[in-house]
């Protein structure tokens, strides 16, 4: 009897809302066609792709993991993998906490206009493309004509090869990334901070809490879930790599530390017309990213946070 009623309930629900579901068909179809259908071309990673035959008519490779084996046997692939992990790891290490600190500092500014002004200034670099930034970096940091080295030369220092020595290159790479994205990444934290109930601060004030205490006991816990979500999403990107940044900044002298998976795939796969190899590496990269994402998410849940699903 109960079952029947619930069946009737579902029927009524569908009868009332079926047009809404019908409307949902379009976005779902969009996702299926433009997001999932193209993914079937991943099969390229298991085929000897011939560009004139297309993905489907190309023969399966023998053995089926041929391109994966080929990639894993190449020394340069491991270099690229190591560099990707190193550069992204350093980016996470420095690039993740800094926006939080900056957001906290901005939040403490009493003079609202100055706060707005600073905020705008620090997030403007986000809108510059890496091509432009690498050009600026070359103008500023080149050993002979770079402004920085010319100034250092005045005080008898240098020239410092910011862009051509391995260690310095990595430092420059990370620093420029911080400079570009730090301000932009504060936006979400600032938004989360605004969502904190002001009564908590008032109560803390009454209790005589210092500024630092308020940050530690109210602001930070207030944005903790935001921090966790962003951390999980960043973990998902640890092996993914942007292309324009390493591609624009690298040069022949630092290839050993500058070549990451995305640039490796571009050089060897796309320019070298080894599309199957490219797909295999791309697939490997995506699978590892998804694993990281799951791991970070379950870790977050274990620590009592909500995670992202």
């Amino acid at each position: 009897m109960k079952q029947k009623r619930s069946g009737r309930k579902a029927y009524l629900y569908i009868k009332r809302t079926w047009t809404l579901y019908l409307m949902l068909v379009l976005p779902v179809a969009f996702a299926l066609i433009f997001r999932y259908l193209p993914m079937t071309n991943i099969s390229m990673a298991f085929k000897d792709y011939n560009m004139f035959k297309g993905v489907w008519a190309s023969p399966w490779s023998d053995p089926i993991f041929k391109w994966f084996q080929k990639a894993f046997q190449t020394k340069d692939f491991w270099f690229a993998l190591r560099n990707t992990l190193m550069l992204n790891g350093l980016d996470l290490l420095f690039g993740f906490p800094l926006p939080i600190i900056l957001a906290l500092l901005l939040n403490e500014l009493a003079f609202k206009r100055y706060k707005k002004f600073t905020q705008t200034i620090v997030y403007l670099p986000h809108f510059l493309s890496w091509i432009i930034i690498s050009g600026i970096a070359k103008q500023l940091l080149a050993p002979r004509t770079g402004v920085v080295n010319i100034l250092l030369g005045r005080i008898d220092v240098g020239p410092i090869n910011f862009l051509t020595e391995h260690g310095l290159y990595v430092a420059t790479y990370i620093a420029l990334g911080l400079w570009k994205e730090m301000g932009w990444n504060t936006i979400i934290y600032l938004a989360a901070i605004t969502g904190i109930n002001p009564e908590l601060y008032e109560a803390a004030e009454v209790d005589g809490a210092s500024r630092f205490r308020k940050i530690w006991h109210i602001t930070l816990p207030g944005i903790r879930s935001t921090i966790i979500v962003l951390l999980i999403m960043n973990m998902g990107r640890i092996l993914g790599s942007e292309f324009d940044r390493p591609y624009a900044m690298a040069n022949d002298l630092v290839m050993k530390v500058a070549d990451v998976l995305s640039t490796y795939v571009y050089r060897v796969g796309i320019r070298g017309m080894q599309f199957s190899l490219t797909s295999a590496i791309g697939l490997f990269q995506s699978v590892v990213c998804v694993l990281f994402l799951f791991a970070a998410n379950s870790l977050a849940k274990r620590f009592g946070e909500r995670g992202i699903w």
Binding site: I33, G54, W56
Partner: peptide
């Protein structure tokens, strides 16, 4: 209501249809 349903269906069909042609190209006899 009928008209809107019809429109939705037409859109779906045309989107799916376009996709069909694309697949057809891929499998063209080399």
């Amino acid at each position: 209501k009928l008209l809107s349903i019809l429109l939705v269906f037409m859109l779906v069909v045309s989107v799916l249809g376009a996709c069909g042609t694309k697949n057809g190209d891929d499998t063209k006899d080399p």
